[in-house]
């Protein structure tokens, strides 16, 4: 299987220069690398520019409603643990309307990969500020309250106990591919923060500025060190790479083995055998 075998016949509606193209490409490459059969793949989203992405993949995909992709993915994964489940969404979808679901998805720890394509703006509704929009932009629109600073989504996810936390930039295709591959392989809830600029509502110079603020995590960085991971999420610059990776065998104290439906109960018409489970 090649990356293009994971594409549906549908052509993206994204603007020329949109960062989401890079994510679609990197994701399909990662899926090909992992040789996940499309019929055993589910790509789920809410609503927004990036939430169109599932429709461009060849999979059992679901373009649901604004902010609610995580509960849907959790339900699917519990009901059908053998289906590789990926959630794609934007910063408005995931960090504004849908934020309440994120820490709960993390603490349930289903084997789901959640990639947020963060452009710091509401593109689909034409340029409103999002929870990750920087202060200067909001001020220029007359929006900022006295202290309306952006969220730090990676720190938030880390502090919620997420076992796998990574960041990449849509403009760095090999890195997107590598990061998505590692996230999907992680047996547990994995979070990928993807910096993906908006070609229409941000200036080219701003997109360039974001790109230049990115650094690769240093050689020898230990992603199992939680304190280091927290440190890596702070400050003006964006650290790219696997920021935190908890040993999946070392479930947090008191955590239970995930219990699903399909292990004991076979859905009718599923055509799935036990041994076909995705190889790690």
């Amino acid at each position: 299987m090649k990356a293009k075998d994971y594409r549906s016949p549908l052509e993206p509606v994204w603007c020329t220069g949109c960062g989401d193209y890079g994510v679609l490409k990197g994701l399909t490459q990662a899926l090909a690398d992992l040789e996940i059969p499309p019929e055993r793949l589910a790509v789920i989203s809410g609503i927004g520019c990036s939430s169109r992405l599932p429709g461009y993949t060849r999979s059992y995909s679901f373009n649901s409603i604004h902010g609610r992709a995580l509960p849907i993915a959790t339900g699917l994964k519990l009901a059908r643990p053998e289906i590789t489940t990926i959630v794609i969404g934007g910063d408005g979808d995931g960090f504004s309307i849908g934020l309440g679901h994120l820490p709960h998805a993390i603490r349930r720890n289903p084997d789901v990969t959640y990639a947020v394509l963060d452009n710091g703006i509401y593109g689909l509704t034409k340029g409103q500020s999002s929870p990750t929009t920087e202060v200067d932009f909001k001020r220029s629109r007359g929006l900022a309250g006295p202290d309306e600073r952006p969220l730090n989504p990676v720190l938030l996810v880390l502090s919620s106990g997420c076992g796998f936390v990574a960041r990449t930039h849509a403009g760095n295709l090999p890195h997107v591919r590598e990061t998505m591959r590692a996230a999907i392989r992680y047996p547990g809830f994995s979070f990928v923060h993807v910096l993906a600029g908006c070609a229409t509502f941000q200036t080219p110079s701003y997109a360039q500025e974001i790109y230049e603020r990115c650094d690769m995590l240093p050689e020898g960085y230990d992603p199992t060190d939680f304190a280091k991971a927290v440190e890596a999420t702070r400050g003006e610059r964006f650290q790219l790479g696997v920021i935190y990776r908890r040993d999946p065998e070392a479930l947090p104290e008191g955590a239970l083995e995930p219990a699903g439906v399909a292990g004991i109960w076979q859905p009718r018409g599923g055509g799935v055998s036990e041994d076909a489970a995705h190889e790690e």
Binding site: A42, I72, T74, H101, G270
Partner: peptide, 22 residues
């Protein structure tokens, strides 16, 4: 059985399972 974080998530999870054929 899952105790969801709210009722929106509860029905969302049900729809996810149903999407999976359950």
């Amino acid at each position: 059985v899952v105790q969801a974080e709210d009722e929106i998530a509860a029905l969302g999870m049900v729809l996810g399972a149903s999407f999976g054929g359950v």
